[in-house]
Design a protein around this nucleic acid. Structure first.
Lengths: 295, 295
DNA sequence: ACCAAAGAAATCCTTATGATATGAATAAAG
DNA sequence: CTTTATTCATATCATAAGGATTTCTTTGGT
């Protein structure tokens, strides 16, 4: 049972002639005869009544005609619906990211990609690196922006942004000009972001400085910590990214000594097919790297 | 663009695997790979994302999936619709009916239709009017015989049989010669058929007579009620149809006053194509109307 | 104007082969 | 002793070549 057979049948029924139907389908007349014959065999029903030189649908043919027309129309609709996808007008990119990277890095990149490709459908999932990477491996995400290192052998990591960690204090607090070191920081009331790679980096940095991290409180939100520090409740060590934009008039920030940075990476599956939308987003991200958070 | 290709695509998308899809279609895996590839080439869109050992539909694929499913379903419908026409004489008519109408009206009509068309395949579904009509609209039934009124804009109703409701009492009970009225009946122990249009008619009839229906017991089977009345457990009001045949020697039956009848209708879909089998059954039914339950 | 038969063309399927990812088992390191 | 790399076996999809089937055209009836 073929589309061609149905199409030919419709033509024959409409035109009342095998020859005319053949002509319209750019076929020879015997080909059409055969198609109808096969269709009739397949369905076990006579579809076209050959009387004299007229070809006329039987009752069964008449009923099939309505079905066939609908099927052909549906088919055209299916084809039609693929056009936006074909021309690269439509697309989808599912991004996973940590909260900080998302807030300060992705909006610009997303808007750039959207400007290039208005039909692009971008979704973002915020989560911790582990979950994000698991989803990436399961291919329920197309792209991730997470703190390195990112494990997983099926994943490809591209260094993307170096985000220096800063000591943060309330405005007016005194801070060593060369930057506070681990010993200095360990004497302050520390509000720390809980969990994640960033937290681990800070712990290692303090260990290297000979002291242990003794957080006074832990929070799940960098934004919350910023507010608390600004209100004078303690010090913190936060990603520079999160300090670029606002609250600078209530906060004192300086790079720690020795320098400590977390490196953000763009992660995709090694075998991921790069759609146009995905390429646009990647390009926009790499451009953002050059001029970060300038918005 | 082939049905097979679409079918394979649907299978791959649903099963998430080329190999599994191949197995289901009784093909080899490369055949399925090729079909998908050709389909993708034809449409100019990537439909299945092959990532790792999993296969999942792209956004374009997801959209095509809905179309493809519909097309395949339409095709099956087309094929199905040819079955009644097949081999001239064979066919199938699916009838839905209430239990009473079925037992006393349909057997005769069915045997008549079968005599005319021995190859005809007739199936009957018993149920309440609502379910039957729903199935009729869904085209999983071809014809229904139910108590009117039958709602449904896509349905065509033909009045078919007037079935007088009779007061039924155990043999020997005294009954007004002109027929019992509502007041009279309300003093008896009443066994009533539960639910349905017939029940509603009786309620209205008693309301019109100034009394309320106070059933002693309700049953789901007219046959059961007949037995109980015959056993002297009470009175009832039943369709005359159900009293024509048997048990007359144990039952006293008389039309109620004022006369009360339920009207049975033949219902088909307005756009239903009349196959020969269906026409035969309709004809047989209309003949039965003239000489009801004489068998 | 449609049907039938035979050869030609195209399509489609299968077998065989290769590449890649996954999962388990094993070895190495903190 | 748990965690992280490495290795190997296995499962999956892609590709290529050969062969079988289908389908079309040509030619000659009815």
């Amino acid at each position: 049972m073929n589309f061609d057979q149905l199409q030919s049948f419709v033509h024959v029924a409409e035109l009342g002639s095998f020859t005319a139907a053949a002509e319209r389908a750019a076929l020879t007349q015997p080909a059409v005869s055969l198609q109808i014959k096969l269709l009739e065999q397949r369905l076990g029903v006579r579809l076209i009544e050959r009387v004299g030189r007229r070809a006329q649908p039987t009752p069964a043919g008449l009923e099939l005609l309505t079905h066939a027309r609908r099927i052909i129309q549906e088919l055209a609709g299916a084809e039609e619906s693929m056009v936006p996808h074909r021309s690269g007008i439509a697309g989808r990119v599912r991004i996973g990211s940590g909260a900080t990277a998302f807030i300060h890095l992705l909006p610009l990149a997303i808007s750039k990609a959207k400007a290039k490709m208005p039909g692009l459908d971008i979704t973002v999932r915020i989560g911790n690196a582990d979950d994000i990477l698991r989803d990436l491996e399961a291919n329920s995400l197309d792209l991730a922006v997470v703190t390195m290192p990112a494990s997983g052998r099926s994943l490809e990591v591209e260094a993307f942004y170096e985000d220096e960690l800063m000591a943060v204090a309330p405005k007016g607090a005194e801070m060593p000009a060369a930057g506070p070191d681990a010993a200095f920081m360990s004497e302050k009331t520390l509000l720390v972001y809980e969990g994640g790679n960033t937290r681990r980096s800070i712990e290692e940095w303090m260990s290297a400085g000979g002291v242990r991290l003794k957080p006074a409180m832990e929070f799940g939100s960098v934004e919350a910590i910023k507010e608390l520090v600004a209100a004078g409740l303690g010090w913190s060590i936060l990603p520079g990214l999160s300090l670029k934009r606002d609250r600078t008039d209530f906060l004192e920030a300086r790079p720690v000594r020795p320098k400590l940075a977390r490196r953000l990476g763009i992660v995709i599956r090694r075998d991921k097919h790069l759609t146009r939308g995905l390429r646009e987003v990647l390009k926009a991200l790499r451009e953002t790297k050059a001029a970060p958070a300038s918005a």
